[in-house]
Write a protein that binds this DNA or RNA. Structure first.
Lengths: 336, 336
DNA sequence: GTGAAAGCGCTAACAC
DNA sequence: GTGTTAGCGCTTTCAC
């Protein structure tokens, strides 16, 4: 309840509300002197315009929504960081929502946002299978930019990384370092992001004349608390000498499992993973990572959204691909 | 621009807007049948109430603001996670702002929020010296809850951890493991949070009859990119056999510095730090941490804010202290 | 260059 | 139980 409003300013200045409003918006119809007087009074009384009144009037909110699976995640928190910085530059506000990988929650957020609360949406999809129709519905009414976790069947503007190349090159790196049985820890398999990562792995194996061996692909179950035991038995049963993890959350348990099983990384098993751990360097052993430019993805995604605001947004249907970085460290060092 | 509004619904149903509005809010004055009809039509037409209109009417926004130094930080992202979950339960929206430790940016956010855009604020203060007057001004108009990074001179509701005990006990642990020269990496010194951590360190030294030695307290400079070199020379010059770091960001460089200087953790130097690293266990060596209940702090802070909404908020001036956890690992193992 | 009036969508008094 | 009216604060025709 900003108690001082335009009416009050107008009263104090012996002007009409209309004039004050125009002066505040620096309209050319207002004399320099009046503008001065208004601005001064506004400052003196600590006037803050009521955002709801002007949103109601303009049908725009100066607010964007960010929907992510989790905030407490090295990748997403960095991306949000980038988004927030861009938004701040433009005096926009950022609403944040986490889906915890549930498409039901995701959908309910999207529906709620159709009310006009935001001018646009930045979203990284939940891994649970999505309702494509929903997105079509939403994107008819609201500009929406997808980042990192995207789906081919859902049209729209997308910012991703070179997922296919990343896993392809990662496998290549493992092969060069002598791996013969390369396991893959699969995740995000309902999303294009996950499919591309998987395909890069498969194609790289093929190009190296490795036999197809489905058992070397570990499929994550529903429950997150089963990850560790799943990985442990995977390692024990399949005896891979290299593991490529498609998400950071599956790579960490490998460390624990190897310790438990008595395997040495990298002597017995080489490990590489998508990760935005700031201190992958300090792990024991340091982790070879596929490092995604998370901050830049956030900046890019937000940047595109603002571009869309300034044009007719539905003209856009592009996909921008940023490059990830393969950072070689001890976990893949040496040959066998 | 939710094109379907109450007027449209009213028109379709041959009712007045007021009746529709009442039906939607489940008013007791409306007949069961009418309610049914309205609800059905609303669903059929995908009606979403315009949040700005109702905010304007009610002078409340169903939105809270979270102001933190950084989002991409293990502690803050977890806290935000907790906040978001609580907000979601209550159908509230969460705006996010990062100050990058600048009190100027912090102040400008606070001022902008006075417009009524949010019903309350959760804030973790920037380390840069704060303008107390500002907060008094803001908290007159808006409920505000401080968490973790708090300031004694600023009145208000606060959620913190047992900072003094944490450092006191950490020093105790180092002493028990044979440390004779315990260095302290100081940060947040303008805030009570930082002062309490420092005091816990000082008192623990005194209680163990250690001589006062100001040079063993490393004061962080302005520039973050100087952290590493600062720490390196600190270690070389002061030759501490134990280091207590008041923030995670100062502990990580210790690893690099020790490697560079040829010191072994924990054989030559024991290290302990405040940290919410998920995988402190996997560092080389694993890091003994003071683990703050970040998620719970977020939940608690948001919970209190909602309590304040339901009562007369200015009655509150309490401080809630949650306990941190000292998790002993290899970086402080053994005696010399 | 300034003012009066209407309206964005919703809701609460006040009718009946 | 339902309708009429006014107004939240801001902006924008349309007057003058």
């Amino acid at each position: 309840m900003g108690e001082v409003n335009i009416k009050k300013l107008a009263y104090e200045l012996n002007l009409s509300a209309a004039t004050v409003s125009r002066a505040l918006r620096d309209s050319h119809e207002i004399s320099a002197e009046t503008k001065m007087r208004v601005l001064e009074m506004a400052k003196r009384l600590n006037y803050e315009p009521n955002p709801f009144a002007s949103s109601l009037r303009h049908q725009k909110s100066k607010t964007i929504a960010v929907i992510v699976p989790e905030i407490a995640n090295n990748f997403f928190s960095l991306a949000i960081n980038g988004i927030e910085e861009v938004a701040r530059e433009r005096d926009y506000h950022v609403l944040i929502y986490q889906t915890h990988e549930s498409s039901k929650i995701e959908t309910s957020f999207l529906m709620r946002l159709l009310s006009g609360r935001v001018d646009g949406i930045l979203i990284s999809l939940a891994s649970e299978a999505v309702d494509k129709e929903n997105f079509k519905e939403v994107s008819k009414k609201l500009p929406i930019v997808f980042f990192d976790r995207v789906h081919d069947d859902i049209e729209g503007v997308k910012i991703t990384t070179d997922d296919y190349d990343s896993t392809y090159n990662a496998v290549q790196h493992l092969v060069e370092n002598g791996c013969k049985r390369i396991g893959y820890l699969r995740a995000l398999d309902t999303l294009s992001t996950g499919k591309k990562r998987m395909q890069g792995y498969l194609d790289a194996l093929k190009d190296n004349n490795f036999p197809e061996e489905p058992a070397l692909v570990m499929i994550e179950g529903e429950k997150k608390d089963q990850r560790y035991s799943l990985i442990k038995s995977f390692i024990e049963e399949q005896k891979p000498d290299g593991i490529l993890s498609s998400i950071e959350e599956l790579a960490m348990p490998c460390y624990y499992a190897c310790k438990e099983v008595g395997l040495n990384i990298p002597k017995d098993l080489k490990l590489i993973s998508f990760s935005n751990l700031t201190h992958a360097e300090l792990l024991n052993p340091s982790l070879t990572t596929i490092n995604q430019p998370a901050f830049e993805i956030g900046v890019e995604a937000a940047g595109i959204l603002f571009k869309i605001f300034n044009k007719r947004w539905y003209e856009f249907n592009e996909t921008i691909v940023l490059k990830s970085n393969l950072i070689k460290r001890e976990s893949t060092r040496g040959n066998f």
